[in-house]
Design a protein around this nucleic acid. Sequence first.
DNA 1: CGCCGTCACGACAAGGTTGTCAAAGCCGTG
DNA 2: CACGGCTTTGACAACCTTGTCGTGACGGCG
Lengths: 350, 350
Amino acid sequence: MSRNGDPVATPYRPRPTLHDVAAMAGVSIKTASRVVNGENGVTPAKVAAVRRAVLQLDYRPNVSASALRRASGRTAAIGMVLEDLANPFSSALLRAVEDAANSRQVLILAGSVDEDQERERSLVRAFSERRVDGLIIAPVGEDQGYLRAELEAGTPLVFVDRLPQGLPADCVLSDNEGGARAAVHHLADTGHRRIAYLGDLQIVPTAQQRFAGYQRASLERGLPWNPAHHVHDLHTIDEAATATTRLLRSDEPPTALFASQNLVTIGAITALQQLGLEDTVALVGFDDFPMADLLKPRVSVIAQDPFQMGRVAAELLFQRLDGDRDAPRRMVLPTTTILRGSGEIPPASP
Amino acid sequence: MSRNGDPVATPYRPRPTLHDVAAMAGVSIKTASRVVNGENGVTPAKVAAVRRAVLQLDYRPNVSASALRRASGRTAAIGMVLEDLANPFSSALLRAVEDAANSRQVLILAGSVDEDQERERSLVRAFSERRVDGLIIAPVGEDQGYLRAELEAGTPLVFVDRLPQGLPADCVLSDNEGGARAAVHHLADTGHRRIAYLGDLQIVPTAQQRFAGYQRASLERGLPWNPAHHVHDLHTIDEAATATTRLLRSDEPPTALFASQNLVTIGAITALQQLGLEDTVALVGFDDFPMADLLKPRVSVIAQDPFQMGRVAAELLFQRLDGDRDAPRRMVLPTTTILRGSGEIPPASP
DNA sequence: CGCCGTCACGACAAGGTTGTCAAAGCCGTG
DNA sequence: CACGGCTTTGACAACCTTGTCGTGACGGCG
């Protein structure tokens, strides 16, 4: 009863192949291939015939089969292993790389690892099984030695945001230590001596570097070293808010806060607002975030430039793909200090 | 003189193939294939030998070659065509789809179109040449008929955020009209009668729907219809801010604003803050955004749920991949009205 | 007119894999 | 020991494409 409009599964029409194109154009497969790939040595008449057939059949070359046969084996795709595709930092990286890849007709496979080492490895494996031409990785694991085979097979690797461990490879980092140091110096310049550190998971290398910057600046300025003012392992807004509240309610509260990361900064702001202290306690956050200049007070930050990081990483990768086989490079991108208000609140006179 | 540490380009080691595995294990290629694919009918001793060889060579099956040969032709990859990978809406969609894909060992190819029709088509073409198993598309073009060949070849298509034109395909939308209508009703409930509409590019279908909702609610509440209070084609924060400023400085300024989109909302807030009117003029925005509840006043919004949208789209897609060939479905996701303060500001008494 | 170089073209193999199928080995039974 | 039935195994073709190379046609030259 297929007449009365029942949805009937029409059989799928198989995709046309070069074989079909060649048949329709009345030439050999090889000649069709030549035309499709723009090689010369084909009569204009046959070129036209093949072109017609391609159009009529809506022929799409099969890149997989092509890559399989081609000498270079290039698939014109690269893989990106990121922390979380939904977070602004990762997605800015992705977008920047996309722009670079786009101009070379290269596609991007992307995945999130969520701080899970196992997932990092399985993603890389999946990309490798697709024979991506290169990988850009924001590593979470403690050892990237498992990638040696990729490197040896000639797949260029570029690490972003964090240093690779146990593998010589290109790498693009922010100046985490320098940025954190600048933040603390700025708060000290404003008159603060009791500056709390609110940090991400200590296993995260960038968090370590930022704490090192905090420590270095504290030393340089002769600030009191008070472990009660150092909170580590904050990984969500709520955790950061809770920790901030506790700090500010303690006997000897800090007069300024350095938040080592996006979500921590937001958590700190939440807590400050709840306590009504947002105009009393100074705050500098690491990482800029949207809206930072619409809050009251506007939030001073140490900004990274994820777009530039992605752009530089992509440049490195494509240089490698173009044959550059020099020693691995490490690029350190400077941070920018953006003063908007929250970091310029002076300490309350005691 | 390669002894003294000059960087010397060591030749790349070609990736091991099944052939190599088979040779090392002393079996035929086919038997190695059987072991790798977990087929049975292989002696335990040979299974063990092949496993050893796989491990020792760090063999990675070539998914492309495999897909080429397999009857299904599945590549275990899907393509996503999004507005801009760096914007929160797109990246939330991407992430939600990734989570669904991940549980099926499917990878994601993603690209941004930036409101460029041409780019939409070229991205789809690139994905199609990779023989992705399915496509999730946030369309920008005015006609998706060019995708018919994909559909006929059996590649499931799911559209998100916007309806496809000229093609019967699955589709997941927010209730744009309903959400906008709710926003205006809420502002009317608060006592407003002069509610301005600040809208995105008019060619964008979602913008049209939101304007329709605004119009419908205005009618339902008998609000004055004042074209001077309707601003269209705002696509950046700056444009929105400028337009808002102009509106509020006009002879008969609105007492409330409905911003039809993320960036427009932010632009409106910027303008309100500059004019010192943020506690005087009411504002409801379409789309939630991070920090909306840390601003002063907190920003009332009509929230979409991009994660759910992505999840639903992925579900549809995978159902199709699992053989569902029913008529195309259209899913409309409800919006949520989140009242935080800015939408509850009463009109200034004249 | 015969020879040779050039060019267009296609037959064939190969790339890494899986589906098909026949051969070979093993077992128990009569 | 011959036979039938079962399991294990590998040779071969095929997927779609491109690289190699030989063939045949053509034009130019001696």
